[in-house]
Design a protein around this nucleic acid. Structure first.
Lengths: 339, 339
DNA sequence: GCAGGCTCTTGAGACGATTCAATAGTTTGC
DNA sequence: GCAAACTATTGAATCGTCTCAAGAGCCTGC
């Protein structure tokens, strides 16, 4: 451990600790000669500031927690990248925490972050109901919900998932599909529920001509997408849907793999549309159509809101920012032709 | 900010701060009645321990920094996942930092981590020469090099990249390729240099029958892989290599996309082999052959070494752990047939 | 020569939790 | 009944830094 402290520096430079602190924080008020001596002592001892002590004194840290549902999902990595870009400009550190869709892990991370007195937390919650979060906010840690609209208790940034689902559904229906499966995850995740509601409303708008099936998995991963794909592929052709709308691209990629391994052609036998438009979607076996979200912008906006709240808590009014998704059509949802 | 402190709890429970601390840390030595009163006060006030103060007092934290070359590369996400799994079992937090291949960013992250007095740092350095790192170690922060063999100054975990390159090269040669391009990144990155050395030695072993070209990019990303792919695709067919060995899967995916957009068939016109075997490699347009590394195991082993060093610095001897890569053959490197 | 105004520097008191020697109170053993 | 042993609690010191009121010099102007 770098164990040299400001006191040793002060001794070596023959000044008081207060002066060393001044050299570090307001060098202009220290005389050049003294400043030089202090710098030399710092260098000689290899002194490194103890940020922990500074925080304790200051009462607040320059760290923001970002709790995401799945670090393995590039969507969240992009959100994090956006947030970090802004944080960098504000001398702030972002610590990335992975709840992996597990409320227990989420809670442990939140506890840890609160105990560390982070400046604030950006979070994509596992569940729609978030009593811990509300307590945490009540105790004074600012929170911004990411990719999940808030109830007014705090700020949030989100993309209109209902609209996204609707766009995806309308697209598949327009392409001639009459039997569509929604490949989703736990409906407790707000985004999943909304996307499902969106596709459901698109189907309803078709006036009964289109049938919507639903498959749910415990997590939005490639493996779960593949598992559902296996089950769908195993259906007798007459019962099998001709198109799948997946709750995210990870699932879509897994679903796509299952189609391939069962000899089903995409999009001829099965059209697929994903969600998020992660970079890997375009590089997939069959380039994936997907509902695109402004990933980095979500992260940037979230931390902007947080920094705004922190810098002027009195003036701050909570805001709910909502972005629009848009559809990226690639090969996986080419027009339906009955074989 | 959760601003209630141990003192207020003590007042409300009508005990001393020492007793509150005891309730928190050694509840068994406090009488049940007192303990209960303190718990009630804690609950009533919504008291949350200040980890910063604990840390200051204790002098050491329960946090480990993990500095990676590229968070957008799932390889590193998997390494991080492995490390976090072990950390979880030791009540330790992993802070993920992204150097993005930029020495400046790397240095800023290292400074930050040192100032926060983290327990130790796991890092995949941007450059082979690492003077800052050595100073950091000299000042007392334990460091474990990840995916990069150390010089003996500290522990390291790595995969034999030279062997990996050799395996990939031998495989392509065995498949009949006589003109191979190495799609690499900055040679300052040790892994890249080693993989290149490996393929070079495989080519040398062929006794002059095989020609090896080299393309380098400033970063190991999908975009850079695509850019190199564009250049290679533009070569006259006679000069064009028939196989590409990419420094990692991200580049391979980009390279693959470029082939597709130029109408070159993989593997008929161009065989491709990647490195890392990330999950997306199997889901690519043409499933990618790749040199597999034990990704999570790297992370687990790295933090194991770190925890070992921290828990008993006297006894600890630095170790260099080296794993073996193995080849995963998929469609992208099917046998070469002259068109 | 001295008041008043500078410029630097100092030193003490937070910040919030932990630790430990000291103390008060209770039980046990004989 | 009293010393010894034990239990429960206290209070002060400590970790490393920052802040700020106060002080020490020094200069300037009259």
């Amino acid at each position: 451990m770098a164990t040299t402290n400001i006191k040793e520096v002060a001794q070596l430079a023959r000044v008081s600790v207060g002066t060393v602190s001044n050299v570090l924080n307001r060098p202009e008020i220290v005389s050049p000669a003294t400043r030089e001596r202090v710098f030399e002592a710092i260098k000689k001892l290899g002194f490194v500031r103890n940020e922990v002590a500074r925080h304790l004194r200051a009462g607040r840290s320059r760290t923001v927690g970002l709790v995401v549902l799945d670090v393995a999902n590039p969507f969240f990595v992009d959100v994090a990248t956006g947030a970090e870009a802004v944080a960098d400009d504000h001398d702030t550190m972002v610590v990335l925490c992975n709840s992996a869709g597990d409320p227990g892990r989420e809670r442990r991370h939140l506890d840890q972050l609160e105990q560390q007195r982070v400046m604030g937390i950006l979070i994509t919650p596992v569940e729609a109901e978030t009593p811990w979060l509300e307590e945490l906010v009540a105790r004074g840690t600012p929170v911004v919900l990411v990719d999940s609209p808030a109830t007014g208790l705090q700020c949030s940034v989100a993309v209109d998932d209902r609209l996204g689902g609707q766009i995806a559904g309308a697209h598949l229906i327009e392409r001639g599909h009459r039997r569509i499966v929604f490949v989703g995850g736990p409906p407790s995740i707000k985004q999943v529920a909304d996307r499902q509601a969106g596709v459901t409303s698109a189907v309803a708008a078709s006036g009964g001509a289109v049938e919507l099936l639903t498959a749910t998995a415990p997590a939005l991963t490639v493996a779960e997408g593949r598992a559902i794909g296996e089950r769908v592929a195993a259906l007798p052709p007459a019962e099998r849907p001709t198109a799948a709308f997946c709750a995210n691209d990870m699932m879509a990629l897994g679903f796509l793999q299952a189609m391939a391994s069962h000899g089903l052609r995409v999009p001829a036998d099965m059209a697929i549309i994903g969600y998020d438009d992660i970079d890997f979607a375009a590089a997939a076996a069959v380039p994936l159509s997907s509902v695109r979200q402004p990933r980095e912008l979500l992260g940037r906006t979230a931390i902007d809101l947080l920094l705004e709240e922190v810098s002027d808590p009195e003036q701050h009014r909570h805001r709910q920012v909502i972005f629009q998704p848009d559809l990226v059509v690639r090969d996986s949802s080419a027009p339906y032709r009955s074989s």
